[in-house]
């Protein structure tokens, strides 16, 4: 706050006018989610009428539908747990907040096809522990070569449930769903302990890189690195540290509310840790 004198409304307005823009990531994330919604609504016979532009957008859907699971939202309170989990699994390996969700969509939809490879590694519906540990990075990379936005909270998966009009889970899966749902609800505290099959050194490398970027005030690079960490180590051993860094980076980037959301998430996951106290104070 050295360039902008706090005692001038005009100075604040001038600075805010040029300083308030979406990031590339914001643009891409929304584009994927939006086009998936449009295509989904059209395919479902919804009220959104397909235009010629939808045809142009359709190819994008192949790589974007799976990414819907990471779009942020608030509106999925009504989604049934099984449905939520079903779609959460669509984002398996994508959303770092993914709860254990072995269920998979019944249909051979585009989403299903494009997440097939990731499901192969977690396809045992009665073994949520396998799903938790799975970090299908190669599969993920294959199914979504586009830059992957960060998942910000569990609502992302819920939103996907609302958005894509979830298919009912297969009967074989339904028995596992309530179990998984329970685990999802309790997951905040147990998740951290369930470490991903990652190597600590690799995790550290990424986090050091993020910290370095942050030290240079390069919040974009820091957040991008943290996104990469989240993708690669959705159950990483240093996940609390990564979340803490993300809070710092978001604060520095001016995304205060998002920072607070991440801090809250960290507080749920790593209750009592010194990091939490620090994160909750981060933007003050």
């Amino acid at each position: 706050m050295r360039e902008v004198e706090p005692n001038s409304l005009d100075a604040i307005i001038d600075a805010a006018r040029v300083g308030d823009h979406p990031t590339h990531e914001d643009r891409e994330r929304n584009k994927r989610a939006l086009f998936a919604k449009i295509a989904g609504a059209t395919a479902a016979g919804g009220s959104i009428v397909a235009s010629s532009t939808t045809t142009a957008a359709a190819p994008a859907l192949a790589t974007t539908a799976a990414a819907v699971a990471t779009s942020t939202a608030l509106t999925a309170k009504l989604a049934g747990a099984a449905v939520v989990l079903t779609l959460a699994s669509v984002g398996a390996g994508v959303a770092y907040t993914r709860r254990s969700a072995p269920a998979r969509p019944a249909s051979a939809s585009a989403i299903d096809r494009h997440t097939q490879s990731s499901h192969q590694s977690i396809s045992s519906p009665s073994a949520p522990s396998i799903a938790r540990r799975a970090a299908p990075l190669p599969a993920r990379a294959a199914m979504d070569p586009a830059p992957q936005p960060p998942a910000t909270d569990t609502l992302a998966a819920q939103r996907a449930a609302n958005t894509v009009t979830a298919q009912p889970a297969r009967p074989a899966v339904s028995a596992a769903a309530p179990q998984a749902a329970t685990s999802a609800r309790a997951g905040h505290t147990t998740r951290v302990a369930q470490s991903a099959p990652s190597t600590l050194a690799d995790e550290l490398t990424l986090l050091r890189s993020a910290r370095g970027a942050l030290a240079r005030s390069d919040t974009t690079a820091a957040l991008a690195t943290l996104d990469r960490y989240a993708q690669q180590f959705s159950r990483g051993m240093l996940r609390p540290e990564a979340l803490s860094l993300r809070v710092d980076a978001l604060c520095a980037a001016g995304q205060r509310e998002r920072a607070r959301a991440v801090a809250s998430e960290l507080a749920r996951e790593a209750h009592g840790a010194p990091l939490v106290e620090r994160a909750l104070r981060a933007c003050r």
Binding site: V4, I12, S217, C251
Partner: peptide
């Protein structure tokens, strides 16, 4: 709480971000 009280604003973009927040 929306008003940032961080002591450091190391560069112009951070200052703009802070102005936006304010």
């Amino acid at each position: 709480q929306l008003v940032d009280t961080r002591s450091e604003a190391p560069d112009e973009s951070a200052a703009r971000a802070e102005a936006t927040r304010i």
